[in-house]
Design a protein around this nucleic acid. Structure first.
Lengths: 141, 141
DNA sequence: TTTCGTGCAAAGCATTTGCAAGTAG
DNA sequence: CTACTTGCAAATGCTTTGCACGAAA
């Protein structure tokens, strides 16, 4: 895996200790964490870290194109490291956001109706595989 | 156009005066209004209306599948009447959300990787036709 | 020095909740 | 009456801002 410091530098972000940790957290996590989740995780090893720093850092990362703000589930922002393009699936039951690697953009090129597209975001809602299986052998409502 | 009362009834919503007005507002608007925008508009004709009622009403409409909550642009929810399936284009310049009727993403059926899809949301970011013309043409931008 | 990064505390603001008064059936 | 709707006011909770301290250049 490419060094986190290197990734930050390439994006024009000075690799401070906190920034490295925040990015590392995002890269290792598959849960598209909220600010709160990142904060709780990092607070274990950096007791003095503040949410303000997490907000600052994520805002900076977003500006630099390192992460995406997934505004899928409403009240809390969830962050996604943009390693490669992918889509998201939001499960209504367990409320997890699952990466979907396989979906790709179809027939439209870089334009739709004359509008110039820079980013395409696809997300799906439904019930995930895991919850479907649970449901099969479960009493439910 | 189908009567608003009728639409509400079909979705199992009792057509109160306020609810009719909120839905009418959404149907007539092309700007995917925020709660604030709806509130300001309706307050002109219903001076006693409250934001709580707008929130209640939109929440109810969402539950009944009448409207979508577009969480595209961050801090404020924007609402979209679900007349027929369509996608959205968010212009970074003018910050408008534009309906795109024609886009459909192909190859997935009702399942992706074993997950059961109930809704598919696509949205695009970039610069809209209008802003492109302002910029590219000789009109000042 | 100047600039930048960090983090506490307070403020800001969209949204939700508690509750009381009004309305329909 | 009984259930539902409305809306004021207060609370909640995510996020931003003001500011000060310390580190880096």
């Amino acid at each position: 895996m490419k060094k986190i410091q290197q990734i930050l530098k390439e994006k024009g972000v000075k690799p401070s200790f906190q920034r490295i940790r925040v990015l590392e957290c995002l890269m290792k996590s598959k849960e598209h964490p909220t600010v709160e989740m990142i904060y709780l995780k990092l607070a274990k090893e950096i007791p003095t870290i503040s949410k303000t720093t997490i907000y600052n850092t994520l805002g900076l990362f977003e500006d630099k194109g390192l992460v995406d703000d997934l505004t899928i589930s409403g009240q809390e922002a969830r962050y996604d490291y943009k390693e490669k393009p992918h889509s998201h699936f939001y499960c209504k039951k367990c409320r997890n956001i699952i990466d979907i690697e396989s979906i790709r953009v179809p027939c439209h090129k870089d334009e739709i109706c004359g509008n110039q597209i820079e980013e395409a975001h696809y997300y799906f809602r439904g019930v995930c595989k895991r919850c479907l299986n649970k449901k099969g052998g479960d009493v439910n409502g």
